[in-house]
Design a protein around this nucleic acid. Structure first.
Lengths: 221, 221
DNA sequence: ACAAAAGTGTTCGATATACACCCATGT
DNA sequence: ACATGGGTGTATATCGAACACTTTTGT
């Protein structure tokens, strides 16, 4: 059954968030070789009796302190030579958090930092490719699911939701058409609260009726 | 770096085809424990210096003799306990061939057999779950890509193509609307040939202008 | 009063759906 | 002649895209 030394298996996570008018992703600085000092995706080796999803969740928690978020399997990368230490198969995950402010240092004490999707540093391993894959997936899912809603807090204005779509897709949307469509889905509950305090008319706040994943044919564009 | 004995990695393939008015999939009978005598997906262990895709392609060739087909990564299954021999992480692939007639015995000499998607036998490991995942993917891709065209030979009648859509989706389609839409995509080339010999009016044959994968928003239904 | 974002409807073109009959062949 | 699947067009409903002005607040 065993034909050669088995590959190692890691779970790595591409974690997205939105702040500062930018789609951002979390990277950690490597403390050990290979690629010491370079930025990489948070992740690490699968532990005994641990599912792949659990490994991704654990690694993310260790790096960021975040426990509750949207997390789904992305793709598996296993080309020989992608890790100089030997054969490593990486199961990549794709994650969304509402706000990077909720991300603490993490117990791993590695340096972690948010980077705008448009200005990433040089990355270790084949992590650039993994991130491109995650971006493609995020953009695709924007169009036919409501996953992108996981980038928002519990209460938000319609403008915030529109901003998420615009930042991820890179396209501007018409405010009237956007509101018409999003409200027609019947998945939002208008709250009595408004967001006040800005130098402008206060925005009505909304909440999702469900945080469940919904597949919607022809969602946006 | 090594915290415990590494998992083994396999590549397994869900191979679809259409014949006999059914969506069918290829299974092999296991010759060794565990699950000896039960039906399972073709697949096997990753070899040294072999990419995941190459492993899937190799396993499929060994079992079926098929070399050229549509092949894409599906999902990775790694729950502890899914293989009684120990920790096994399986990268599942998803494949389409035009006609099961082109599938020979394969050098592995394992018993291989096509089964209709609606009437599968009891399966080894968690392969039932993997197949469900593949079916979901196939049905989803039907709607926004042209991958399903890989289930057809070089020359085919429009009715054949419609049949593919109907068998995979399980829904009947209107002949006139189907033809209008499929031809409006401009991806088919009408041939001068017709399919003759049946007890009916001969059908015009068509060929794909490209076998390349095309993403089409709102493709069918 | 002014700046800044919130909020709101209608028109038009494109696309999807529903639907029924004649045609060409083999026996 | 008849059985079998091949082939074709139109009318209606639905959806997406384009488009501009008034409202409410804080300073």
């Amino acid at each position: 059954m065993i034909r050669f030394e088995s590959p190692k298996v890691t779970a790595d996570v591409v974690l997205f968030s939105i702040y500062n008018d930018n789609l951002q992703m979390l990277l950690v600085k490597r403390k050990n070789p290979p690629f010491r000092g370079q930025w990489a995706l948070p992740g690490g080796f699968l532990e005994r009796k641990e599912s792949l999803l659990a490994a991704a969740r654990r690694e993310l928690f260790e790096e960021t302190g975040v426990r509750h978020l949207y997390l789904e399997q992305l793709y598996t990368f296993g080309d020989p030579g992608r890790d100089p230490r030997g054969r490593v198969v990486t199961v990549a995950y794709f994650a969304l958090v509402p706000s990077p402010l909720s991300v603490s240092a993490g117990s791993d004490a590695r340096e972690a930092k948010w980077w705008p999707a448009g200005g990433l540093p040089k990355l270790a391993f084949d992590h650039k490719r993994i991130i491109e894959c995650a971006l493609t997936r995020l953009r695709a899912k924007l169009e036919y699911t409501n996953v992108a809603w996981s980038l928002l807090p519990k209460k938000f204005a319609l403008t915030d939701l529109q901003k998420v779509y615009e930042l991820v897709s890179g396209k501007e949307l018409d405010k009237r058409n956007f509101r018409k469509k999003i409200l027609s889905l019947g998945l939002l509950r208008p709250l009595k609260e408004r967001r006040t305090g800005a130098h402008q008319r206060p925005a009505r706040l909304y909440a999702f009726k469900t945080k469940k994943k919904v597949e919607l044919k022809r969602f946006f564009k």
